[in-house]
Design a protein around this nucleic acid. Structure first.
Lengths: 344, 344
DNA sequence: GCTGATTGCGAGAGCGCTCTCAAATAGTTC
DNA sequence: GAACTATTTGAGAGCGCTCTCGCAATCAGC
């Protein structure tokens, strides 16, 4: 009934009739404690509802047993959809097994990012994962230099000593274009992502590669940049149709943009896929809810998460080995936006 | 050049030629330090790249200056869409101003939840926000009882002493039904959310209220439960059409379910809105990308986030006052799924 | 029943910081 | 310039925990 505040190890030890050291050993799963002493401590802890104070433990061990995942606000909004939970699922799978806690951090502003750097540097986490940063964000390098293991999700667009895991954006985009070519399309436009992001650049690269494979010309009038968002896809489609009424297909670097494009195509009375075939990227939930359903490039998001987690853990054991990178394969999913009656 | 590890306050103080206490005062923005001493400390800190060790500070102050936001995995997937970033934006807005760090926690499994309870109880955060838990999850109460301020987003479906903020689900659903009634619809079906969630129950309640307002009968054959997901909406719509081919409208407790319903209506050759009017809930991005665009009930998500943050902060100042609650108004957005040519 | 391992335990130092308290310094007033 | 008051400063305790060390207890071997 008494409102005593959180119990300490000291109190548990006293109640159990052992020393603080012995009680500590029970909670650190550390060597040899007699079954009798162990039971006594466990019982006392149970009775007092004892939970070890994390700050105290961290102070002495230097470990926090948690890993941070940094997702800048704009990213979170764009990938609204399953990207985010799927990534977390993959990461968690690996961390859970090791008893580590995942904490997500979403800076909303420059100001937040500054605080975040302090947070990460202050030893709040044992390692940091970051996804799809814009431009050449200095954060990963800064944190890396301070000795915290860092793993990026998505290739940084500057050369950087930081480890990263990425999906094969180039290959995926190339496959998408090859698919359109195999369908007999020859005037293939693209709505690119932001070109200050690795994914944006790489998907455009893959588009170019695909054209080259087929002996087609790269034509700037067939390219228009979006920002991965639906609105931008609609705007881009309008512009492209105005410029090139003869286009017979479009590769969109994101499903959301493809959804925007489909809307415009419908308004302009172009039949999909007969007049214009459309392929997206991400294979998000949007892909199955558009009319017609969207052919899209699927990414192994969970696997990316798992790989990121694995990488950050090897970093936090040994010294951070610089510049490790892992690239994961993508896969084309064909639906009715490119092949009449195609796919699910 | 020497690889000395993270500098301590001691070292900064020595370099600045002051005592540890004075140096500490500089970083805690605490009382009177002479400009001269302050400058010396700041210079030393800059030179050593000093960042205060958070664990040590927490150990003595008992504060962590961070607030946890718990989002169970299934929730994160369902609200794929902007819900999540918008909520975070609202919360961050308030926390940022106070210099607090928001950390997100996404338990993926029962096991994770157990660890999470430990994490929260171990004093890792000064307060906890939780959204849309299923059933009567014991976590909030447990954490609350341990003395950590807790605020729920969404009404818990059991009576609980825990503070919460919710949107007016009853009122929103009621308005949606009134809208359908005003359109002359009389056979109004509903696809409900999961009835072990507050939002599910309340929206059904609002549906009933709306019918009652209009003097219409509550008819169980017009109700079918979904899980807020698109698939479940499709299944529910099929079932409802089989049972009641005469229905002239349907209120869906989530946009994703409405999207599933629209798909089925299209397959069954029912024109929307002429034959069947559809209204969703959430006013998510899905609402504008369906064909036709979806009338939907908009929720003030950011405001909910802000309110949650404010509430948890008052809790962490004074003693946690039990059972404070805040309900925020919703708003109907009319589009073409209920009114021909209607809305955006 | 004595010696030498082996195992279980407690004493105590100390992680890096904040904060109280009293000493030192600077500033006023008559 | 003495007597005070206001302002800065430093010494030191201690937050709750882990972990090294050395001692006590147990056990095996002969």
């Amino acid at each position: 009934m008494a409102a005593n505040s959180t119990p300490t190890l000291e109190e548990v030890a006293r109640l159990a009739g052992v020393s603080r050291a012995t009680a500590s050993r029970v909670f650190t799963a550390s060597p040899k404690v007699s079954p009798k002493a162990r039971r006594a401590v466990e019982k006392a802890a149970e009775k007092l509802q004892y939970v070890p104070n994390r700050a105290a433990r961290t102070l002495v061990t230097g470990r926090t047993d948690s890993i941070g995942l940094v997702i800048p606000e704009p990213t979170a909004s764009l990938f609204g959809d399953p990207f985010f939970p799927r990534l977390v699922r993959g990461i968690s799978e690996v961390l859970s097994r090791r008893g580590l806690q995942l904490v997500l951090l979403m800076p909303q502003s420059r100001e937040d990012e500054a605080r975040l750097e302090g947070y990460l540097s202050a030893g709040h986490v044992d390692g940091v994962l970051m996804v799809s940063l814009h431009g050449n964000d200095p954060l990963p390098e800064r944190v890396h230099r301070r000795g915290t293991p860092v793993v990026l999700g998505g290739k940084p667009n500057i050369n950087s000593p930081v480890n990263y895991v990425d999906v094969d954006n180039v290959g995926g985009a190339r496959t998408a274009v090859q698919h359109l070519v195999s369908l007999g399309r020859r005037t293939i436009a693209t709505i690119t992502g932001p070109l200050d992001m690795g994914a944006g650049v790489d998907r455009l690269q893959g588009y170019h590669d695909g054209l080259r494979d087929a002996g087609l010309q790269i034509d700037p009038t067939l390219e228009f940049a979006g920002d991965f968002g639906q609105e931008s896809g609609a705007r881009a489609m309008q512009e492209l149709l105005d410029r090139r009424p003869d286009l017979d297909s479009v590769f969109c670097a994101a499903d959301a943009m493809a959804a925007g494009a489909l809307e415009v195509l419908r308004r302009r009375r172009r039949r999909v896929p007969q007049d214009v075939a459309v392929v997206g990227f991400d294979d998000s939930t949007i892909a199955t809810s558009t009319v017609p359903p969207l052919s899209s490039v699927r990414q192994p998001i969970e696997e990316m998460g798992r790989e990121m987690a694995r990488l950050v853990l090897t970093g936090s054991d040994g010294p951070a080995l610089g510049g490790k990178r892992v690239i994961l394969a993508t896969q084309l999913v064909v639906r009715a936006s490119s092949v009449k009656g195609g796919g699910g």
